[in-house]
């Protein structure tokens, strides 16, 4: 499997390079939003799938990134500086939120982030002098790099693709580093991980903060993509949508969030012919998927693959043993 992986990844990148050529503006726009939601979902996957914490504020972190980028670029600061500040601020807010929440039992981060996302929405809507209130902010320009403008949709797609690939590479590196391996240890057997000297709380906090920073980057990309931001694009419902992306794709799998983002963004487009019923069909599908395969689509794929070609299993009794 590992032998084919580099070839598959190269094929995937090639497909991404050729995907928008000859397509209409709308499809390119949808592809761009898939890329940026994939970045946010990848960050959430680190929190959820690897550190086992539920964050309900990923859209809020996108909001932080989007508003910081919008305010800075409107004041003539270059996008790359604004994006960096967005990422760092999301990281810092993540640390501040996670530090108290992770002191106590495991489900409290979910509650704190839920409250945070709703509060952030209120602040964005009510502080009209800074954020423009419910009318939002308009007129942010798309960035120019070394004289190359990303004004056209195709150029902006390639710009988002570069950001996406950089983010994916960073995530790959994080998961491969000894530090990322510590996460897997935490997820598989926390008691043993702690007894080997891992600081559970510090690891989880960092995972959450880094995951949030990915949300900040996604937000920084959303500002120049949509060129109009308003509070309701970062409301709690969008955090839930991001959570759906990660879980539907398969949390804890590297490619899970990208698959999930594709499903969550593209399925409504495909189900458009059903008109008002698409959300009903969509939510029913999610429930059925969760009941049959809690590991999402990738988990479902693995299940099917194992049915066709059963993997060798040396000792089934060991499975019970590690849970002790």
């Amino acid at each position: 499997m590992t032998r084919y992986q580099p070839i598959l990844i190269a094929l995937g990148i090639a497909a991404l390079l050729f995907a928008p050529i000859g397509q209409g503006n709308y499809i390119i726009y949808t592809l761009c939003s898939w890329l940026l939601f994939s970045i946010a979902a990848m960050g959430l996957n680190l929190t959820l799938g690897y550190a086992g914490q539920v964050s309900l504020a990923q859209a809020g972190f996108m909001g932080i990134g989007a508003y910081i980028t919008a305010l800075m670029t409107l004041n003539g600061i270059h996008w790359s500086v604004a994006a960096l500040i967005s990422i760092l601020s999301s990281f810092a807010v993540g640390l501040l939120l996670g530090y108290p929440a992770l002191r106590v039992q495991h489900h409290f981060l979910a509650f704190v982030t839920l409250a945070f996302n709703t509060l952030l929405f209120l602040v964005l809507r009510n502080e009209e002098e800074i954020t423009g209130g419910s009318f939002g902010l308009v007129g942010m320009e798309r960035p120019t790099f070394f004289g190359i403008s990303t004004d056209s949709n195709l150029a902006f797609y390639y710009f988002s693709l570069v950001c996406f690939l950089l983010a994916a590479a960073a995530m790959w590196w994080i998961l491969r580093s000894p530090w990322g391996r510590a996460f897997k240890a935490l997820r598989e057997n926390p008691i043993r991980a702690e007894s080997l000297g891992l600081k559970i709380r510090r690891q989880t906090l960092l995972a959450f903060a880094i995951g949030s920073a990915f949300g900040g980057l996604a937000g920084a990309l959303q500002t120049p993509l949509v060129q109009f931001i308003e509070p309701s694009s970062f409301a709690l419902i969008h955090s839930l949508k991001l959570l759906l992306m990660v879980v539907v794709g398969g949390s804890g799998f590297f490619f899970g969030p990208m698959l999930g983002a594709a499903v969550v963004i593209l399925l409504p487009e495909m189900l458009r012919f059903t008109e008002g019923y698409y959300l009903i069909i969509y939510s029913a599908l999610v429930i059925v998927l969760m009941v049959y395969s809690p590991n999402g689509l990738i988990g479902l794929g693995q299940k099917l693959a194992e049915k066709i070609k059963p993997r060798q299993e040396a000792r089934r009794d060991l499975k019970e043993g590690v849970q002790l």
């Binding site: 839930l240 959570l243 759906l244 879980v247 429930i287 969760m290």
Partner: peptide, 8 residues
Amino acid sequence: PLVIATIA
């Protein structure tokens, strides 16, 4: 998964 299912 149950949290996700109840959201859905």
